[in-house]
Design a protein around this nucleic acid. Structure first.
Lengths: 197, 197
DNA sequence: GTCTATATCTCGATAGAC
DNA sequence: GTCTATCGAGATATAGAC
């Protein structure tokens, strides 16, 4: 048979990617293994050669956001922002609070796409979520004069603002939340009050 | 038959209360109509005399948090806090960011218990969620010198901090998030930095 | 208005051919 | 390693007695 180990790993990555996008959009419980495998170009019978359960796949899908190779469209910073001398974290916040991210259900950061699903899941899934949160906290900390407290505040603001903006189902209120949070983050961080890119 | 209209309304309220608590803990999709009716002391066959669908009940369950008569345990402020001269909103923030609220899955505010479920639901459910958010924004605004911007920031901080604390699955990090957000809210609100009640 | 009973469907997981 | 086929469980919603 022409199945090399790399081929299996490639298939596994395709399944995780497919699962991450579907979970993000429709939640853990409402997505079926058949759909995940179908979107990966496979059939659902082969699933259990890669994962022991649907829950195990969930943890991998959350973790993927850290390890993934290609950034989502909303993560790409505008080129004209690169020469402003602003710290990297400020561009991450720009992207995180962008309208593109708000509407990118499938490619969303799991922190805002799956918070209640994760809160109801097992330890492995929560550990993956925590890894992601800590990674962002460390990233913010650097451009916040090493202040972990400020980094936690910025993360809570970004997550809270976007989670609310997604759930209120009102474009005007959603934009108001994004803009206000963005302004407040930049003010408390001392990044100037440069408007969104 | 001894069934008065008030009796029917009483039953309806019991169903909504039961649903709200179960949805909060385990999410919309994983809770069955049979469980909801069972917890209300009924059987699942009678459900459709009260609601047209499970989704319709979901909207009512989210809305309930506003209309409900009795506050949850975590919403009750400590008596010794009443004579400090602090504004009402500051006590609401205390309760919202409390460890009791963090661990009260069933009696939680839906804003932090069901954000991703609501984001994936229909317009009626989102409208109920928005009502709740706007009610809190108005409440904060009063004790924030009428600043809507500050009210939005406080709401985003409270929701973001608690959503993260619930999902990271780590007591230490969860407490750090709650404490840090609490401190920052009190600082920016100018409520003094009185520690949690 | 609430019950028991059931129709219809779909899911996660497994079995076994290739 | 991936396929087709299926098991067994449990879901929403409906039917009809009382």
């Amino acid at each position: 048979m022409p199945y090399s180990p790399e081929r299996k790993d490639e298939t596994r990555r395709k399944i995780i990617r497919s699962a991450a996008r579907l979970f993000n959009r429709r939640g853990f419980s409402d997505v079926t293994i058949d759909e995940i495998m179908g979107a990966a170009g496979l059939t659902h019978g082969g699933f259990y050669r890669h994962f022991n359960s649907k829950n195990e796949l969930f943890a991998e899908a959350v973790r993927r956001f850290l390890r993934k190779e290609k950034p989502e469209p909303w993560e790409k910073n505008q080129p004209n922002c690169r020469e402003t001398g602003r710290p990297i974290a400020s561009f991450i916040v720009d992207a995180y609070l962008s309208r593109d991210h708000l509407h990118d259900g499938a490619g969303s950061c799991p922190l805002i796409g799956l918070p209640s699903d994760v809160a109801r899941s097992g330890k492995a899934v929560k550990a993956a979520y925590r890894e992601l949160a800590q990674s962002m906290i460390r990233g913010f900390e650097i451009d916040l004069n090493g202040s972990r407290e400020q980094a936690l505040v910025v993360l809570a603001l970004c997550v809270g603002g976007m989670v609310l903006a997604r759930a209120v189902g009102d474009q005007v209120l959603a934009d108001e939340l994004r803009d206000t949070v963005h302004k407040h983050v930049f003010m408390t961080a001392g990044w100037g009050n440069g408007p969104s890119c």
